[in-house]
Nucleic acid binder design. Structure first.
Lengths: 102, 102
DNA sequence: TTTTTGATATCGCATCCCGATATTATAAAG
DNA sequence: CTTTATAATATCGGGATGCGATATCAAAAA
């Protein structure tokens, strides 16, 4: 199956996953790459990090730098606006699911 | 809520809707615009038509021209490959839904 | 003939995706 | 104490994509 098409189809799914995890608890970039792989989404750092930056600059996520074993990691957590977007995404995802299931 | 982000989040949803409807029965472009509006997705022709062309050139949809009241309409119906992609989308949508619900 | 309407097509700019590559910092190896 | 390895994050180039605005095209209505 053409990967080109599939990826684009699911980019929104991936971003919703990101918001969802960011709401559960703060995460850092390379953890998210592995998490997404567990869901069958292969994502290179060159794709993920710009997405995180964008979501942060748009106010959906915010960064908290933590010092972990001497190394600085950037943890992303969800903002109030991010929560709103996630809620809207849930509604839309539910509606989509209702329509296409069977 | 920022429309820029929201739109991108849901573009995949929209394409899945398109595949779903194309499987139920052939549709034509401007009908789909209204259908999507019914789901809360505003989509201009300048966005939809290139997407239909792309999905057709990638083999997810195929075109059948019908003469309706003297005018030619292009009806899109799903292909076998399109069905495969739709099935994959259903699986992924279900998985997403399971994870983010409640 | 002119205007309107419905459907489809295209243009241009800004944005975005993503593989490849680079950067930074610490730990481990020699 | 250099060198190498490893983990995490950042950036670059270019090709694709989204989308508002605008155009085309054909038939019906005025």
């Amino acid at each position: 199956m053409q990967e080109q098409i599939i990826r684009k189809l699911f980019l929104g799914f991936i971003k919703i996953h990101i918001l969802h995890h960011a709401k559960k608890e703060p995460f850092f970039g390379s953890w998210m790459i592995e998490e997404l792989q567990g869901h069958g989404y292969d994502m290179s750092p060159g794709t993920l990090y710009p997405i995180l930056h964008k979501m942060e600059s748009k106010g959906l996520l915010e960064i908290e730098e933590k010092n972990v074993e001497g190394k600085i990691r950037k943890y992303y957590k969800i903002t109030n606006q991010g929560i709103e977007v996630l809620e809207e995404a849930k509604r839309k995802a539910f509606e989509l699911f209702k329509e296409i299931k069977d």
